[in-house]
């Protein structure tokens, strides 16, 4: 295969490190960008440079922000008495897509892991406890993954919040929208049955 210039090869190598891309798809993407230099590559490069310059972690919740505080924490219309605890920023974005939650968030940055020796101090748990004490929070919603590590973390946080005067809730587990029982795993069916409600 003919080699592009060194700079383009470097760009392909960098693109190939992105999730979802391999060397061949990175090469295709770079070729597409070069063909659309003015319309796509230049604005993309400028935007990436700007985001690289300004993006940082929100000092309050751990979300990605353009300044010290993210838009959600800075928004006065958001309910300050409810905090939704999520594992990472991707989960926060997923919750925001649902447009159902009007409170604020707290991003842990991972979950407790017995095998990887990730403890509470490695996550944003101490900071969460500080926020609850200082921001007058009345409800903490644990929106953590329904995995062993996710639920271990949820139970740990629930324990840590005991006696602090806040209501601790968690997302329901069960049949997803559009889900067919025949295709559900045993664990989900068990959880759904345990969480059944009057119809």
């Amino acid at each position: 295969m003919a080699r592009a210039t060194d700079e383009i090869e470097d760009l392909i190598a960098l693109m190939a490190r992105l999730p979802g891309l391999g060397p061949r798809s990175a090469r295709r993407a770079v070729l597409h960008l070069i063909r659309k230099r003015g319309a796509l590559m230049a604005p993309l490069a400028a935007t990436m440079a700007h985001v690289a310059e300004t993006a940082r972690e929100c000092a309050r919740c751990g979300n990605i922000a353009a300044g010290d505080i993210c838009d959600i924490c800075a928004n006065p219309a958001r309910t300050g008495t409810e905090i939704c605890v999520v594992e990472d920023v991707a989960d926060l974005w997923a919750m925001e897509r649902g447009q159902a939650f009007k409170g604020r968030y707290h991003v842990l940055g991972g979950t407790l892991s017995a095998l990887d020796a990730i403890g509470p101090e490695d996550l944003g748990i101490p900071k969460l406890l500080e926020r609850i004490a200082s921001e007058g929070v009345s409800e903490v919603i644990l929106a953590l993954n329904a995995t062993v590590d996710g639920q271990t973390t949820a139970h740990y946080i629930a324990d840590a919040l005991e006696g602090r005067g806040v209501t601790v809730t968690s997302l329901a587990q069960g049949v997803p929208i559009g889900g067919e029982l025949d295709y559900l795993d045993d664990g989900t069916i068990q959880a759904a049955l345990r969480a059944r409600k009057r119809f």
Binding site: A146, H155, A158, D159, D185, G187, T188, Q190, A191
Partner: peptide, 9 residues
């Protein structure tokens, strides 16, 4: 699955 464990701390 032993998924029942997820709800028991």
């Amino acid at each position: 699955s032993r998924a029942g464990v997820l709800s028991d701390r």
